[in-house]
Write a protein that binds this DNA or RNA. Sequence first.
DNA 1: TCAGCGCATGTTTTT
DNA 2: CATGCGCTGA
Length: 741
Amino acid sequence: MRAMSVDPIVNSLNEAQRRAVTSDADRLLVLAGAGSGKTRVLVHRIAWLIQACHLAPHNILAVTFTNKAAAEMRHRIESLLRAPLGAMWVGTFHGIAHRFLRLHWQEAKLPQNFQILDSDDQLRLVKRVMRGMELDETRWPPKQAQGFINSNKDEGLRPEHIDDYGDIHQKTLVNIYQQYQDACQTGGMVDFAELLLRSHELWLKQPALLQHYRQRFRHVLVDEFQDTNRIQYAWLRMLVGNDNAITIVGDDDQSIYGWRGARVENIRQFGDDFGRAEVVRLEQNYRSTSIILNAANGVITHNSDRLGKNLWTSGAEGDPISVYAGFNEVDEARFIAERIQHALQQGHRRDDIAILYRSNAQSRVLEEALLRAAIPYRIYGGHRFFERAEIKNALAYLRLICHRDDDAAFERVVNTPTRGLGDKSLERIRALARELKIPLWQASLQVLQHRELATKAGNALKGFLALIEQLDQETRGTGLSEQAERVIGASGLIAFHKNEKDDRGEARVENLKELISATREFEISLQQESATLAAFLDHAALEAGETQAGENEDSVQMMTLHAAKGLEFPIVFMAGVEEGLFPSMQSADDPHRMEEERRLCYVGITRAMKNLYITYAESRRIYGSEALHAPSRFIREIPIHLLQEVRASARLTRPMSTFDSGFGGVRERSAAYRGNNGYGGARIQADDSPYQLGRSVRHPKFGDGVIMGCEGQGPNARVRVNFRGEGEKWLVAQYARLEFV
DNA sequence: TCAGCGCATGTTTTT
DNA sequence: CATGCGCTGA
């Protein structure tokens, strides 16, 4: 390996990138603007450390925020070096902290088989603890308590470190935190924030261990440093110490997670705190046209709190940014769908196009518009695979099998599928568990022993305990996938979900089957012997699973602005760019939050490579009622010569011109708009086919529905109808006997 | 045990 | 508006 030339590592880099990659500074801060080759620098620097500085992969630790980023980084390093890097640690903060805790469970005072609690499990546990404290859930929202616990852990604080100011409210929350923590400890459970806090404390209390890792990790590299929170910062600080090297890469202008504890200040603090750092700025952008870049710069310069950086490109100027004012959100969506269709006709791939929005609630109308235009799309976000209820149920069975004391799992499935074990019996078990500070499983055994339950409930409980024991014994020594298959089969979950009356039941059964194949894939991806049930459960908890249906199909990408960070698309639509929505209303009063909104806008704009469309609606239905919003201040912050207003088709005259009125002047709405049917009506159809999109129809068998699409003409036309209850069907017009209603 | 009702609630999200 | 939750009654 050493004989290899380092040329490929540095040749393709620009001057700044090369300085960053080859720097011999112990503390290197790379301020990397959007699209400036951030990941590239990180990847090449690691390769450089290995090949030019002869650092063993074993001595390097690379930390990211998401599993996806970690996987991508490893992959890119390996393909650059053309060698696998088994010994190098690349992972998320949480993944790495977890690894430490697994290796040193004893020193960390955890049971060997401790389990990871995801936020859903955590909330349930918080609720349980609160019920034990007899707190009124309306006065003390469990979600808020959960947030309190997590944000304190993220700050590195234990209950005893929190000052309650003698305030009852605060006192109660601290108390909940304490009791929750006790419950975690007895149950051998660790939540996400705990992974970091615990491993930080582990080093604090075990200097020898810390020393060992300091000797091992000579160089630590961190991606997206602007997203680190306090505990992550402290964790890094401790691991690096005074003698090791650290490279951090980040962009203060892309800090959009302040609301969940990320501290941009960490970047600024880095220099002082770690000792003088060399700073390299990456300002040349390789992604976007200069118009898009200048727009982004125009917006972000309105923030005062910046380290300062100016992106530039040597590339083409490109097309102006299109701004469209929809008269309502349906019209806005219609416009977007129409433009997408146009782009597709020009030969663009659907994958090249993204629609970005501030809040998930916006996706629905957009989705409907794409559906109507028959454009395949994919929505990022929402529930991921391992977070789905049916999957969590199945996993709970598996968790109980390898860990009887897992109370979260116990609670979840003692009565799922329902087996006649009511809340009263359960409460008795919980009470005993609380009293004796023992897990629910053991409490159940005792309750049974003392015959404290009604016969029916008692038998149900006995049956449940026996089922778990039996499955454990039967599947001992069998492979993971076989075990999963057997357990899911015996749990009765399949029948349970099949019987659900919604049409969702079927999908759930499918998901359960997919879970079994996920265990198979897991076996294949690891060596057989390390693919244990416990390992799979960790995997499920730490990687919620990107698996989404239709992932491979070429489709338009829809996601929130947050979810878009780190991605790029030739064509980007930013929808709902209105005051109150984006920037969000709840950020209006706080200048810091307003700056974060602006950074979010900066992130959004810089996702676009060639074409950017900014759209907003003059009127939008929000929470049932209609709201009139002014165009977002962010539009005004873009230099006006970069913008081009897209006017609605000639059929209607706009009541307000975006530019003439100086944004947000006259808000008069003409009667012509009110009269239309909510489908962007007047403008949408010139079609003489009776099967118009959105039209309500009735079918003798399927009942009422709405036309979602139409192919062909005349009697042979095929019509796509979304029936209430029946879902979507394709019908041939001449046989369908559709009635218009 | 489960359906049905009234009520509160309503950004952004990874691990 | 629309969803999700807790509580109530059969």
